[in-house]
Design a protein around this nucleic acid. Structure first.
Lengths: 121, 121, 121, 121
DNA sequence: GTGGTCTAGACCACC
DNA sequence: GTGGTCTAGACCACT
């Protein structure tokens, strides 16, 4: 589920963050579900625990997960604040649609793509 | 119009590509419009001309611009092929919507954001 | 009313002290009001009684509560000594105001915030 | 100017953050002023560079400093957003005033303390 | 076992 | 020189 691409110029902790955020947001990790421990994930990905730790720390700061010392890390409850992130997402949403239109997609086709937002990645 | 962020981990030529593609796709550079020359843009951004060259080359391969030897580079006509790029865009579209829904936005709010796809960047 | 945060790096007895002091200072525990016994509070918070004991002992040394052997602990009368604590509070007061000003608040806004010193915690 | 107390239960990077934030907010480090480099401060305080780095990273995320790779870190321009931090500061402000009143200070004395908010720490 | 902090030391890209 | 990332390995408090 979590894939690291060493040719990706983005730092590893960012790639880990993105993967985990997607798992939470997609519902693959429902609220309250336990995430792999820092050490587990580190050995599974053969990445240093500090790097995983940083990903977890920042995901907690962004309210996607909750970490409880001595217990583990868990998918967070859904929250509706986070105006910053919303603005960012709406911006990419608009840009993506603009380019799709430029590539010839009609608004109906775009809407359809959003509806059947069910399958994989 | 073209903004380089040296703290962005992505390579410079990728940032230049994104900026230029956005200009084309948004209509800021309508089809046929002349782009600045590689050398012009390089000096304007104080970036190595090779970096700009690479951005132009790849944008041409992706059909966003057309380069005419001895004349310059121009915004391309709108193309409806590029299935690869379409799939990529639809994928980010779906992921963006999924996270926006997770953050509490209704489908109506998302649709509205797409409609008034007018303001800033 | 007393909230323990196990992720707070401060020792538990400090957190208990702060909570109790706030109750006294806010008037929630008016002078003479009986506090829960050490054992009661310890079981209620599932904390070691020694930890609670230490909080009570130090709060008595600082004149916020009074403990009467065999009878219990009570919110103290208002005291105007405690020059040490006053200096400490005035110091944090000045620093807090300084940062609020830096963040753009005018003296009027700050004064207003102090006036309507009524709502939550 | 930056003092680390190893008996303080708070992590070192937090203490470093607080010290630096105070320097910025107090005007001791005016906007644009260069901060000591990560390595300089690390050796000066005999603290590991990673620990200092973390403090700098988080201060940048909170918009108190700006770090430019290859150039250094600098005190940020004053910004007036940061509603989160404002709320937190106003909360401590109210609590501090409440306890000062309980200790017998009049509103006039408190206001006076805020006015002559000039001297040191 | 868990998350969290810290150290020591390395490497990178950029200036 | 600078900030930034990553590894390796240690220690702590808490469950």
């Amino acid at each position: 589920m979590i894939h690291i691409d060493y040719r990706d110029p983005r730092p590893i902790y960012e790639q880990v963050k993105d993967s985990l955020r997607r798992l939470v947001v997609s519902g693959a990790l429902p609220p309250g579900e336990k995430l792999p421990s820092v050490r587990e994930l580190a050995t599974a990905l053969t990445i240093n625990p500090n790097t995983i730790q940083r990903a977890y720390r920042e995901l907690e700061a962004e309210d996607y997960i909750v970490s409880v010392p001595g217990k583990g890390s868990f998918a967070a409850e859904r929250r509706e604040e986070n105006a910053e992130r919303k603005r960012e997402l709406l911006r990419t949403l608009r840009e993506t649609c603009r380019e799709l239109r430029w590539l010839g997609l009609s608004d109906e086709e775009i809407a359809a793509a959003i509806e059947k937002e069910s399958e994989g990645t």
